[in-house]
């Protein structure tokens, strides 16, 4: 871990970079915009203007957002004293790529097609290297313990064709690696945040499994160790109505957050509301260090805020494409950092 004093420059630069984040006024204008071209015009007045100049069609837009996020990751990676702080945030993309490559492999073996179009360059491990290593079956060159995990996943698929189990193992490994990296950094704020993300993911998974009428014993393997909430206690909630989860988790930071969710809507909307509440909660938690001029947590806080901004733009785009209700769309917007 670098000394906290080494973060003076990085935090100041992050603070200055916050000017590039979209404020709520811009998001409101995008929500109220009539069509895709109006949204592009609004984004053209913001920090996205340079990326948008090369964008011509609606289908390019997703790539534009990805390129913008990639640039931000690379820019911050260049000046942050502890590179693992950025790597932790990029792990989700590394493991997404692993899933895509494995599923493509399974598809090809089943007579289908590769879906490399779903791969992303946002991971911390170079995408080309990952493709080469997986394609040439040089798994020993893969990072994050994938050298042993991938052959195991392939064996499971060959024996049972159980893709869900493969995904479960990969997700489990991702949260393990996140926690390992956070512990290597030895920064209490980051460890606490990774644990909160693990707990949050467990709560989200539990609600989704509840929808499919999983019982506690079937749901338990899908929950990840490493959070602050004991998974045996958490899994027992699956038989309880969601309204009572907030009270049951009152001892943790999640109690109040879950208690504030409107449960009168349908299951799909409930999951959306929980996801939004969780993502806002993660920002609130990691953003607690924003008033310090040298707190390393400012780095993941900015990156998470940027991720949420991109998510907000994507949600607006999808809603516009489907002519969604503006009020409902407003409710789906993640909180901004600025």
């Amino acid at each position: 871990m670098s000394s906290q004093e080494a973060y003076g420059y990085a935090v100041a630069r992050i603070r200055a970079m916050e000017h590039r984040l979209l404020d709520s006024g811009v998001l409101q204008r995008m929500i109220d915009a009539e069509d895709f071209s109006s949204i592009l015009k609004i984004l053209g007045e913001t920090s996205y203007s340079s990326e948008l100049s090369s964008q011509t069609t609606e289908s390019d837009f997703d790539k534009t957002l990805e390129a913008d996020l990639h640039n931000i990751y690379e820019e911050i990676y260049a000046f942050v004293p502890d590179k693992s702080l950025v790597d932790i945030m990029r792990l989700q993309y590394d493991f997404h790529n692993v899933k895509v490559l494995l599923k493509s492999m399974f598809n090809v073996r089943a007579g289908g097609k590769k879906r490399w179009d779903l791969l992303t360059s946002l991971g911390s491990y170079p995408l080309d290297d990952m493709i080469t290593n997986v394609e040439s079956e040089e798994y020993r060159l893969l990072p994050f313990g994938l050298s042993t995990l991938l052959p195991k996943c392939i064996t499971i698929w060959e024996q049972s064709k159980d893709v869900l189990e493969v995904e479960r193992l990969i997700d489990k490994r991702m949260f393990e690696v996140m926690l390992e990296k956070a512990k290597e950094l030895d920064m209490p704020g980051i460890i606490s945040w990774v644990k909160a993300r693990t707990d949050g993911e467990n709560i989200r998974t539990l609600l989704r499994l509840k929808r499919f009428n999983f019982d506690a014993s079937k749901a338990l393997p899908f929950l990840h160790e490493g959070g602050d909430i004991d998974i045996n206690m958490l899994v027992s909630l699956i038989t309880e109505p969601f309204e009572t989860w907030g009270r049951a988790l009152e001892f943790s930071d999640f109690g109040k957050m879950i208690g504030s969710i409107d449960v009168s809507c349908g299951f799909s909307d409930l999951i959306l509301s929980l996801e939004k509440a969780l993502e806002d909660f993660y920002l609130e938690k990691i953003g607690a260090g924003r008033y310090s001029s040298s707190d390393p947590a400012n780095i993941p806080a900015y990156l998470w805020a940027k991720e949420m901004e991109i998510k907000n733009i994507r949600v607006i785009m999808v809603s516009k494409r489907n002519k969604g209700d503006k009020d409902k769309l407003r409710g789906l917007m993640r909180h901004g950092y600025v």
Partner: peptide, 9 residues
């Protein structure tokens, strides 16, 4: 350090 950070931007 802080000044250099904001002046970069």
């Amino acid at each position: 350090e802080a000044a250099a950070g904001i002046m970069t931007e």
